[in-house]
């Protein structure tokens, strides 16, 4: 700096050191880019880690579930109800397809074709996230103990505060009694 310094320590006229020079704007802009780029790893680290993602998809053998019962599988940290429905339960669900419902859906749209006996739903009440109880309530489906939501044998909301039917996970049958969820 010595070679550029002047004897007079004051700035020369019209030479405000804080003037928005191009180079200062460039420095601030570069800093901004860096800050944004640095923020990303610190945000992304809270997303699911590799081992969590590895369990995002599971395969389940459902051969042992007797008709009229359900198997509860933990999938992505939540319960999944695998319900082996009886013909009577399927009939009850189909009969109500056109009944007055909050979230209308045909029973056939909630199962895989040819596999109507298997109803696979995420066991989380669409109201505030509690786990509904199996086989209770007025419609033979589920009853949520937290706020009294009642689901039918197709997992559709029939009474109570929940706004939506029990959600369906992505799943497919990989064999006659093998199902891959997620």
């Amino acid at each position: 700096m010595a070679e550029t310094a002047k004897a007079n320590p004051h700035e020369t006229e019209g030479d405000d050191p804080s003037r928005r020079d191009f180079i200062h704007i460039a420095a601030l802009a570069t800093a901004g880019v860096g800050a944004v780029a640095t923020a990303w790893p610190f945000i992304d680290q809270m997303n699911p880690s590799g081992d969590t993602l590895a369990l995002a998809s599971i395969e389940q053998d459902i051969a042992k579930v007797p008709a009229g019962q359900q198997l509860v599988v933990k999938w992505r940290g939540k319960p999944v109800f695998v319900r082996h429905r009886t013909p009577a339960e399927i009939a009850a669900a189909v009969k109500d397809d056109h009944a007055d419902m909050r979230d209308p859906a045909a029973d056939a749209s909630r199962t895989k074709a040819g596999k109507q006996e298997w109803l696979i739903v995420i066991g989380v009440c669409t109201h505030l996230g509690c786990v509904p109880n199996f086989g209770t309530g007025d419609y033979g489906g589920w009853f949520c103990p937290c706020h009294g939501s009642v689901y039918d044998t197709s997992g559709r909301i029939r009474k109570g505060p929940a706004p939506l039917n029990l959600q369906l996970p992505d799943y497919e049958f990989t064999g006659p009694t093998k199902v891959k969820i997620g």
Binding site: P41, F42, D44, Q45, N47, S49, G50, D51, T52
Partner: peptide
């Protein structure tokens, strides 16, 4: 170091 996103860097 292995599984957390960008965990090795942090």
């Amino acid at each position: 170091m292995r599984d957390v996103n960008h965990g090795w860097m942090i």
